[in-house]
Design a protein around this nucleic acid. Structure first.
Lengths: 204, 204
DNA sequence: ATTTGGATTAACCAAATGGTTAACGACATT
DNA sequence: AATGTCGTTAACCATTTGGTTAATCCAAAT
């Protein structure tokens, strides 16, 4: 670890790694301290407890998880471009943080109420997205479909290949992780293609 | 717990629950013992260690996870029916074991080598599935597509809504789990519809 | 030079946790 | 009746783990 960085930042960085790899229950304060090259007591000096530290990490992760969709929505481009931007954002974020998807999925299951609190704090508004899809349907860009179903499908196609990476790359890519990375990257196009075929009404 | 059941079975049952809910690291031998109404020492009497017990649970879960695809393949019906059967199998299994998807996804990430061993023991053959898809392409039933991509898409659409259940049902279904269950069930049709639109070539 | 306040450390603590052991009881075999 | 086997229990053990404390270091302010 670089000495010039403030301890607090270094801690957050390695804590992120450890919590994401092992989850709350599996993570060890000692390991975080070791990786940050500090005494274990320093952890409690900066962040009072494991839970507090975890909360910070989780909050960070959760914000990344829901990429800046609003930006894509508000810059009123063509519908295709909006979705392309959202898909791109997801793929990009997840390729940077390979454990992110799994982390969120699991720690949410561990303590769902905690999620509810965090959602409000991060001020994320899925309803806005639903309304946008609804409007596209009314304006004849999309076929009639439950907007929530549409969203779940896009999310599924974007996130699952990351969440299941360890499994899928072994089963179907002979554990060649480079080639799997290429595949993940190529999904920008293939997911877009899929939803266009299924949900977009061809404009004349 | 019913008294008539053999201890070993009861243990496996509750161990499944606990491990699935909390994962290997989060699960406690004491809790498993309590839920099975036995002494903690009995756990070690029947299954020597936490790891051994976990292995049994994992093996069970993993077998469920890859539903009897071969059955669907070998009973040479129309292509549509084969995929419908596979999708149905996944949805059914996952509705019965809500934590299954998350459990597999995570414990695989925790110890990927362990997975490789188990795959061989359970004798699952993804290559067979790939070959089947390939043949459908050659015979003009499916558009030209990487069979692996096709598989990942189907898996994503089937599994992710379960893995992300805790998150999605809160964000998009106002935490109404009944209504979310209905949605999950309806995916049998909507996933089929999606892959038909995208990948199936209309027969004359 | 002394004080002050934050950063840092080693040593320590209590609780939790996976695992063991020795003794016991019940039931079948001899 | 004696022996042996299997299931069961309470007590115990060693280690791990999150967290604390008292002392120390160090740099800036006084």
């Amino acid at each position: 670890m670089e000495k010039d960085k403030v301890s607090e930042e270094v801690i957050m960085e390695v804590a992120s790694q450890v919590f994401m790899e092992k989850g709350m229950a599996g993570a060890r304060m000692q390991e975080i301290a070791d990786r940050a090259n500090i005494n274990k007591a320093m952890l409690h000096y900066y962040f009072r407890s494991k839970e507090k530290l975890f909360d910070e990490v989780f909050k960070n992760a959760f914000q990344k998880f829901w990429p800046s969709v609003e930006a894509a929505l508000l810059s009123a481009h063509k519908p295709e471009e909006v979705f392309q931007a959202i898909i791109d954002a997801y793929i990009r974020v997840l390729m940077e943080s390979p454990y992110l998807a799994n982390f969120i999925l699991n720690e949410i299951q561990r303590d769902p109420d905690h999620l509810e609190k965090l959602m409000r704090e991060t001020g994320l508004k899925p309803k806005m997205m639903l309304a946008f899809i609804e409007s596209l349907i009314e304006n004849g860009f999309l076929v009639k479909v439950d907007p929530r179903e549409f969203m779940v499908n896009v999310l599924s196609l974007c996130l699952f290949p990351f969440a299941g990476q360890a499994l899928i790359s072994r089963l179907l890519w002979d554990n060649d992780s480079d080639s799997y990375q290429t595949f993940l990257s190529s999904r920008r196009d293939s997911i877009m293609h899929l939803i266009q075929k299924t949900y977009f009404i061809q404009q004349v």
